[in-house]
Amino acid sequence: MRVLELLEEIEEIVDTAAGFPLTGKIMVDSQELLEIVREIRAELPDEIQQAQWIKNERERIIAEAKTQYEAVIDDAQKQADALVENNDITVRAKMRADELMQVTESTAKQLKIGTYDYLDSILYSFQGKMEHLSSIYFGEMFTSIEKAFDDINSALAANREELKDMSYRTQINAEEMPEPSSALGPEQAPREEE
């Protein structure tokens, strides 16, 4: 900076000037000193403008940094909100999955019971046909064959009883089984005994 150099020049003039004894006063060339002061005045507007520019630039940089800081904070808040929303979606999806698992298990039990009923009706129909065939074709003269049909009939009746028992146990298990908690996952839900 030119102004600093000129001020140093004034200091040097004062330091090297001849002094009056006992007065503390010095003798300087007034023209030389005035010339330096004029140069300082000429340089000062540029120095002041440069200092003002530096000040304005500093304020601009601070304002820009503040804007960027606020943008980063705003972006971080949006990301945090998105994470919270995604977590809420995950919780709702898990609850929906638990509900679907419960419905699926109930439907599977109903299908199993329906299958038992269907098999029972087929066995009942077959049992009726066997009795009909027995009465038409195998009267009293074929006692041994009739006994075989009776044995088959007994086996069919036993099978029906066994199916009815299995169907009854399935219904009892379905009624006694506690509702799965929405906090339990599919792997933690109690399994049905087969």
Rank of each mutant, 00 (worst) to 15 (best):
158 A>W: 06
191 R>K: 15
13 I>H: 02
194 E>H: 05
106 S>N: 14
29 D>K: 07
98 D>Y: 03
76 A>N: 13
117 D>P: 01
179 E>T: 13
97 A>E: 08
121 S>R: 04
134 S>Y: 01
161 E>Q: 13
12 E>W: 03
155 A>H: 01
174 A>I: 02
20 F>D: 07
103 V>L: 10
175 E>G: 07
82 A>P: 01
49 Q>F: 03
141 M>P: 00
148 A>M: 09
106 S>H: 10
64 E>M: 02
5 E>M: 09
78 K>M: 14
162 E>H: 12
78 K>A: 15
14 V>K: 03
59 E>F: 06
161 E>A: 11
168 Y>D: 10
21 P>D: 04
172 I>H: 04
145 I>R: 08
174 A>D: 09
6 L>A: 01
130 M>S: 14
57 E>W: 03
60 R>W: 01
65 A>C: 00
188 Q>A: 15
57 E>M: 05
24 G>E: 02
82 A>S: 13
36 I>D: 01
38 R>F: 00
118 Y>M: 09
45 P>A: 02
144 S>K: 14
44 L>S: 04
80 A>Y: 08
17 A>K: 01
130 M>E: 10
166 M>P: 00
7 L>Y: 03
143 T>W: 07
11 E>N: 11
22 L>N: 08
135 S>L: 08
133 L>E: 13
52 Q>N: 09
120 D>I: 15
92 R>V: 07
190 P>Q: 13
45 P>Y: 00
44 L>I: 06
22 L>E: 08
19 G>T: 06
125 S>F: 07
54 I>P: 00
56 N>V: 02
81 D>M: 12
53 W>K: 12
155 A>L: 06
164 K>Y: 10
98 D>T: 14
96 R>G: 11
138 F>K: 08
85 E>K: 12
51 A>S: 07
78 K>R: 15
74 D>Q: 15
145 I>V: 15
15 D>M: 13
184 L>Q: 14
115 T>P: 00
144 S>H: 11
142 F>K: 07
32 E>V: 14
52 Q>H: 03
119 L>S: 06
191 R>G: 12
28 V>C: 03
170 T>D: 04
35 E>N: 11
101 M>K: 07
107 T>K: 06
157 A>N: 13
169 R>N: 14
152 I>K: 05
163 L>C: 04
180 P>Q: 03
52 Q>A: 08
119 L>T: 07
126 F>R: 08
150 D>W: 05
65 A>F: 00
63 A>F: 01
74 D>W: 04
178 P>G: 05
111 L>A: 09
179 E>F: 09
194 E>W: 05
173 N>P: 00
12 E>N: 10
51 A>K: 04
86 N>C: 07
3 V>G: 00
8 E>N: 13
188 Q>M: 15
27 M>E: 06
20 F>I: 11
26 I>N: 00
65 A>S: 05
39 E>L: 10
72 V>E: 10
188 Q>S: 15
79 Q>P: 00
11 E>T: 11
180 P>C: 03
123 L>D: 02
124 Y>K: 14
166 M>Y: 06
123 L>C: 01
56 N>L: 08
24 G>C: 04
153 N>L: 14
96 R>A: 15
181 S>W: 02
57 E>C: 02
167 S>C: 11
185 G>W: 04
79 Q>E: 14
91 V>G: 01
94 K>M: 12
130 M>W: 06
157 A>T: 15
140 E>D: 12
6 L>D: 01
183 A>W: 11
82 A>I: 07
80 A>V: 09
